[in-house]
């Protein structure tokens, strides 16, 4: 059963001088519990695709259904709620908030969810950080952590709200191979143990081959 469905999705970026067709007629189905890699040369539209799946950006035309819900009519506020509940993001450059400590960074998605007590929040933060081997770093600030640790904090943040979908845009792009390997193992864990659907952009063939399926892009078009 598909959890992510894209139909005839086009994305055009218009600037004053040029018009870029970042995605051209993309049709895509990703099943619940799948771990999918997206590959392709730089500028072919991978991040654009991930942003559209993640409801951070809207397609110029076409339809995006997530968890069998059409998203095109959702208000900005509804989109925010939907992201909050169902989607976790992991970015290449981590995007941790430098002025918040690890615990507060991880708790961020819960801050935008109603009805969670401080105690409950604290317990969840502790549980997820323990799982990722970072419980002793709760009070540290991002600036005091290594790249690999930062990305693990970011993963903790992505899953604390228990989303079904995790979107990772080159999650190992800024890490050396050993730390990259660690992060990949964690993502596989989230996929196998929790049954989360993961869509990951990567430039690394061997990482991609470990996933269920590889989708290749070229110049905004799906080629495989």
């Amino acid at each position: 059963m598909a959890i992510i469905t894209l139909k005839d999705v086009n994305k055009v970026y218009r600037t004053k001088e040029i018009e870029t067709l970042a995605l051209e007629n993309v049709n895509l189905e990703i099943g619940k519990g799948e771990f999918v890699s997206i590959m392709g040369p730089s500028g072919c539209g991978k991040s654009t695709l991930l942003n559209i799946i993640g409801l951070l950006d809207v397609p110029t035309s076409g339809v995006v259904d997530l968890m069998n819900e059409p998203t095109e009519r959702m208000s900005d506020s509804r989109l925010s709620e939907f992201r909050n509940r169902n989607i976790g993001f992991v970015f290449q450059s981590f995007h941790l908030i430098p002025s918040l400590n690890v615990a507060d960074n991880v708790a961020l998605p819960l801050a935008y969810r109603n009805g969670i007590s401080a105690k409950e929040r604290h317990e969840k933060v502790e549980a997820v950080l323990t799982r990722l081997g970072l419980s002793h770093r709760m009070r540290h600030f991002p600036g005091q952590l290594s790249g690999g640790q930062c990305q693990r904090v970011a993963i903790a943040r992505a899953i604390i709200g228990d989303p079904q979908i995790v979107l990772a845009d080159e999650p190992t792009g800024n890490l050396d191979s050993k730390m990259g390997q660690e992060v990949m193992e964690i993502l596989h864990q989230l996929n196998k143990e929790d049954g989360r659907t993961i869509v990951m952009v990567t430039h690394n063939e061997s990482q991609a081959r470990m996933t269920d399926r590889i989708i290749r892009f070229f110049d905004g078009r799906q080629v495989e």
């Binding site: 993640g54 951070l56 900005d76 506020s77 925010s80 709620e81 992201r83 909050n84 509940r85 993001f89 995007h95 908030i97 961020l108 998605p109 935008y112 969810r113 943040r157 709200g161």
Partner: peptide
Amino acid sequence: GVRRAFGAKR
């Protein structure tokens, strides 16, 4: 951007 991604409304 991060806050928005994780569910902050405008």
